[in-house]
């Protein structure tokens, strides 16, 4: 398994480096923008308070929102949508290529014809994906330290630690889901279609739950409800409920994916 991890990592490291640099550059863009926003914070805060309630709810903005702090600004501008989209693209494409993509191309016969167990192949790809997520999370979140110092901005390090945990768990749950689909199917496009559709449905359910009080229980069906970036980045809080749900999804999807891959026909 270690050899598969090393080889997969070596193969895809350039992509990971480019992706991580993109994450850092995006964060830099917002950090560089922040001082000018901060100077006009009162005007922005007043403007925000006049936005429609639905809009405010959609972007997780409440009455206590304050543009004087970079955590508030980043939570709305970066960690609400851009960061999770980057994580989703990274992990779903990795999961699709790692198992189903290999079956589709036929290259899976190379490791399969060697003395390596199927679980070794599955978890080799799985742990490499997790390492990618960890590396991306570390670089794209903790780049805040040098960037804030560069621009002379105060920041709450513990809040970013909290966010990195929530973000990592969110990414891990999506990756486990995508790896499970990748173990089920033999074409990459199906992984993208199933995982993508499911995530869009979850996103919409969460939005509907926020906007319609009588449908608020729908939020429990969405990863985006448990991905509480605002509490993590602004307050440094992590919900134990979110940890529990993500952990359950991770365990269920990983085990089901691994067992399925072990038992399935790999017809090329």
């Amino acid at each position: 398994m270690l050899k598969i991890i090393l080889k997969t990592f070596k193969d895809k490291k350039i992509g990971l480096i480019i992706y991580s640099i993109s994450g850092i550059l995006l964060l830099w863009m917002y950090v560089a923008m922040f001082p000018s926003i901060q100077q006009q914070a009162d005007a922005f805060n007043e403007l925000i308070q006049n936005y429609p309630e639905g809009f405010m709810k959609t972007f997780g903005i409440d009455g206590s929102f304050n543009f004087s702090y970079i955590e508030n600004f980043l939570s709305v501008e970066h960690f609400s949508l851009i960061w999770p989209i980057m994580v989703i693209f990274l992990l779903v494409s990795f999961a699709g290529a790692g198992i189903a993509g290999e079956i589709e191309k036929g290259t899976v016969e190379i490791p399969l014809s060697r003395p390596v167990s199927r679980l070794g192949i599955f978890f080799g790809r799985y742990f490499t994906g997790l390492m990618f997520l960890l590396i991306f999370t570390i670089f794209s979140v903790f780049a805040i330290i040098p960037l804030s110092q560069l621009h002379g901005i105060d920041y709450q390090l513990e809040n970013y630690v909290s966010f990195s945990i929530v973000g990592f768990l969110f990414g891990w749950a999506i990756f486990s889901l995508a790896m499970m689909f990748s173990a089920f199917f033999s074409e990459r496009s199906k992984i993208y279609m199933f995982t993508g559709s499911l995530l869009i449905i979850m996103y919409v359910l969460n939005l509907i739950a926020v906007l319609k009080e009588n449908l608020q229980d729908l939020r429990f069906l969405s990863f985006f409800y448990y991905y509480d970036y605002k509490s993590a980045v602004v307050d440094g809080a992590i919900s134990t409920e979110a940890i529990g749900v993500f952990a359950a999804v991770i365990i269920f999807c990983t085990l089901l994916g691994a067992i399925w891959y072990k038992k399935r026909d790999i017809a090329i």
């Binding site: 050899k3 598969i4 080889k7 193969d11 191309k105 036929g106 290259t107 016969e109 190379i110 490791p111 014809s113 060697r114 003395p115 390596v116 090329i268």
Partner: peptide, 23 residues
Amino acid sequence: SGYVSLYDKWTGQDHIDFVSSLN
């Protein structure tokens, strides 16, 4: 295999080394 499928971005030596490391 009846349809030899290879990793496009690897060289022949990469394939040989990978297989060698697995065996």
